[in-house]
């Protein structure tokens, strides 16, 4: 057991835990997006960026080490996170009013939490295709934020990946193994949709099942369950 401070609060840290895990265990919310419980963190979105000794690092990948002094809610850090979210909004085609995931979307929920009324960057309106060729799921590339949660979590019983990153840089997209995806079970299709933070993986033939007002982030901001830890 070691000790670190996050925004001045002393936090007990079990050996080997990341800063994000230590913060959560101590009732401090650090926003994450590409990180997902049970999956190996990759630090691809940088929304969880914190400052340790003047250096910026991803809280989801950085292991907490004895004596670390972590800044989490400094105004410039929060603004940097907000700008990352805004960049994610402008670089894809995020049409919330038409999206099946609206209200359950983590990107949208973070934008609500950070009160993003309009992004400061110009919209890119990239030309991306919708792939509905698989029997159980639709791949909506317009909404993909390259978090790779699906790549990391959805695998066949013998450990083969169904979702795979293709190409590099701006042309990068998440493709599927055509044969493996055609064998996807309902259960795995549901898991894939749930693991996707945005509306990029959708189950076919179902949608808009939960009415507005009862969806995950309709009433309470993302991270509320961790915030409430503090007051308890």
């Amino acid at each position: 057991m070691s000790e670190i401070t996050i925004d001045g609060k002393v936090c007990k840290a079990r050996a080997g835990l990341t800063i994000a895990e230590v913060a959560k265990a101590n009732g401090i919310y650090i926003p994450t997006l590409c990180n997902y419980r049970g999956l190996k963190p990759v630090g691809s979105c940088r929304v969880c960026t914190v400052r340790v000794g003047g250096r910026y690092m991803a809280a989801c990948t950085q292991i907490a080490v004895e004596g670390m002094v972590v800044e989490n809610t400094a105004p410039d850090l929060e603004d940097m996170r907000r700008s990352i979210l805004e960049m994610l909004f402008v670089e894809g085609n995020h049409m919330c009013p038409t999206c099946e995931k609206s209200g359950n979307c983590e990107l949208q929920a973070l934008a609500y939490r950070y009160q993003i009324m309009a992004p400061r960057f110009p919209f890119q309106f990239p030309v991306r295709q919708v792939d509905a060729s698989a029997p159980k799921i639709v791949l909506e590339h317009n909404r993909c934020i390259q978090c790779q949660r699906c790549v990391r979590s959805i695998q066949t019983e013998d450990g083969r990946r169904i979702f795979v990153p293709q190409n590099r840089s701006r042309r990068r997209k998440i493709g599927v193994d055509p044969r493996l995806v055609s064998e996807l079970t309902d259960e795995m299709a549901l898991k894939a949709m749930d693991v996707c933070p945005v509306g990029s993986i959708l189950r076919k033939e179902v949608g808009f099942a939960v009415p507005i007002g009862q969806r995950k982030f309709d009433k309470k901001p993302i991270g509320t369950e961790i915030d409430e830890e503090i007051t308890r």
Binding site: N93, H94, M95, C96, P97, T98, M117, A118, F125, R128
Partner: peptide
């Protein structure tokens, strides 16, 4: 003041942008 998604980000009409 920009009121609503269409004024802010193009909205549904912007689905023709590609």
């Amino acid at each position: 003041v920009s009121l609503g998604e269409c004024a802010i980000m193009g909205g549904l009409p912007a689905m023709r942008n590609g």
